[in-house]
Simulated assay, not measured.
Amino acid sequence: MTEFPKILMVLGAVLLIVGAVWHFVGRLPGDIFVKKGNVTFFFPVVTCIVISVILSILLNFFGRMK
């Protein structure tokens, strides 16, 4: 049970870094953004793919630590 707090701290630091990068980078090329009149539609396709890849790598890494 002593490893769990360490994992939470590392995960928190990773989320903080990802949030800071996301804030400064903004929308990635490939994200869908449509604005017509008063209606705005935004779907972050590339951002979702990047987050999925990063989470897959992290979960795979933490899964092999046992």
Rank of each mutant, 00 (worst) to 15 (best):
I32P: 01
V18D: 01
F24S: 06
F4E: 15
F61L: 15
N60S: 15
V50K: 02
V34Q: 01
L8C: 13
E3K: 12
F62L: 13
R64A: 15
M65E: 13
G12N: 09
I17H: 03
I54R: 03
T2G: 00
K35F: 05
L58A: 12
L28R: 02
N60A: 15
G12P: 01
G37M: 06
L8T: 11
L8W: 08
F42M: 00
V46S: 01
K66P: 13
V53W: 01
N38W: 11
F24V: 09
R64G: 12
I57A: 05
L16M: 12
T2F: 08
L58M: 13
M9E: 12
N38F: 10
F33N: 10
L16T: 07
F24M: 10
V25A: 03
F62T: 15
V45S: 09
N38R: 13
P29R: 01
D31H: 02
I17Q: 00
F43A: 05
L58G: 11
G37A: 01
F4Q: 12
G37I: 03
L59Y: 08
V45G: 03
I49H: 07
V18F: 07
K6M: 13
T2D: 14
F41Q: 06
G12I: 05
V45C: 00
S56W: 14
V46L: 07
D31G: 01
A13Q: 06
V45M: 08
F33P: 00
G26D: 01
V50G: 01
S52L: 14
D31I: 04
R64F: 09
M9V: 14
M65W: 12
V10H: 09
D31Y: 02
A13R: 03
V18M: 04
V18W: 06
A13N: 07
V39G: 03
I57E: 03
F43G: 03
S56G: 14
V34L: 11
G12W: 10
F42P: 03
P5Q: 06
A20D: 03
F42V: 04
I51G: 11
L28Q: 04
V25P: 02
K66I: 10
L58Q: 09
I49R: 11
G63A: 04
V50L: 01
M65C: 12
L11P: 05
L11N: 15
V14N: 06
G19H: 07
G26I: 02
I7R: 15
C48D: 02
F4P: 07
L11M: 14
L58I: 12
I57H: 02
A20E: 07
W22A: 02
K35V: 09
A20N: 08
K36S: 08
P5V: 00
D31P: 04
M1P: 10
W22G: 05
G26L: 00
R64W: 11
L28I: 10
I51P: 01
V46R: 05
I54W: 04
R64P: 00
F43L: 08
K6N: 14
L8Q: 14
K35M: 15
I54Y: 02
L15Y: 11
R64N: 13
E3T: 10
F42T: 00
F41K: 06
V53H: 04
P5G: 00
